[in-house]
Design a protein around this nucleic acid. Structure first.
Lengths: 197, 197
DNA sequence: GACAAATGCGAGCTTTAACTTGTATTTCTG
DNA sequence: CAGAAATACAAGTTAAAGCTCGCATTTGTC
């Protein structure tokens, strides 16, 4: 009833990370809706009971993953942002960021799988919405660094749109043969340059 | 074993349409994964057994919906395509088509819910892939009508990209307050004009 | 070293949703 | 009209998946 907070030991925190790793792998393969908690437990090398020691239900696993991603991505984009020299040509900037997105997608397919969720339950939608807003804001920051005159409102809108473009093309990129894939990436860069320029 | 084909009577065809209507409504509310066949049957005013008289399993309902949509959309776009005068300014063309997409989306949310499926099982992905390709081809046709010099390959790529852009912005449009929604639509048109021009 | 709390197990409970089955009724065809 | 095929019903079966429970083991603290 009174919802005590549990004092986690080092072992417990490690287990939680292992369970999240397992969930990430399963989501990458099957997507969140088809992920089963027993699968995750088995993959993490623990029993179902142990899983529920750390996560009260399936949705809390999702929350944990999203939280971890958010932190990781914040660090990643901060580093990227700092490395951007203000005078870099737009072509080069877009080229780099798109390439990195493609690379990241192939490394962390679960992240994208979450980013697409729209019609899969409220909690799920809310989680991916948070991720989306976070990334869009970081893109807006970057744009304003490059063009200090850009109004904040406009930068946000452009960030949102740019992210939407990348999101839209990404699944086609990863599910196509290499040549078509390269075509799509090139076209996406071209599109973004025209839009942002 | 030998998979007989059933001779449908008029009543049966009508029932099938009613069941698909019900499925469409449920998908619009909950999405395909959370749709239950019992729900669909209840909404259609038939028993579960009757539903399974016409659809062997849940996926076949999806197939039926997609088939119906494909036919409907083919007719719709054919009519649109014929109405396009070759000399129309790009702004007007894009403006019209985006507006119509927005209107259609608010009328048939299930269609879009299907169009987004990526990580929800093979059959589902294949179905939305078919829808996607079909629409992209029709956009490519339209572009080549306007610009006869455009190579077919290039037109297809542009059609695919343009559809992806619309797809990407649409969920934000319908889940935002009217003012923001209008902003997003305007920005989408601007983006498409810059890209296609 | 002792006690409490955290961790761990895995069999099994419970619910839910896809689907079946047996039977009754309506419609088409000769 | 008669038989066959299609349509209709709803109670019931089944399997899967989320989650619980009782108990054993490990870890941290005094």
């Amino acid at each position: 009833m009174t919802e005590r907070t549990v004092r986690r030991q080092a072992r417990g925190l490690k287990r939680m990370a292992e369970i999240l790793d397992a969930a990430e792998a399963v989501i990458a393969e099957l997507g969140y809706p088809d992920m089963t908690t027993n699968q995750v437990a088995a993959r993490a090398g623990v029993s179902p009971g142990t899983l529920y020691q750390f996560f009260r239900n399936k949705e809390e696993i999702l929350d944990g993953l999203v939280a971890r991603y958010t932190v990781d991505r914040a660090e990643y984009w901060s580093a990227r942002l700092a490395a951007v020299t203000p005078g870099i040509p737009l072509e080069a900037l877009v080229g780099q960021l798109v390439d990195e997105s493609v690379r990241f997608k192939s490394e962390s397919p679960a992240y994208w799988s979450l980013l697409y969720g729209t019609a899969t339950g409220d909690r799920f939608a809310a989680a991916s919405q948070r991720l989306h807003d976070d990334v869009a804001l970081r893109i807006a920051d970057m744009l304003r660094r490059r063009s200090p005159g850009l109004p904040e409102e406009r930068a946000r809108l452009m960030g949102t749109m740019a992210l939407a473009m990348v999101k839209a093309v990404m699944p086609m990129v990863t599910s196509s043969p290499p040549q078509r894939s390269a075509e799509l990436v090139a076209e996406l860069k071209h599109l973004l340059v025209r839009y942002l320029g």
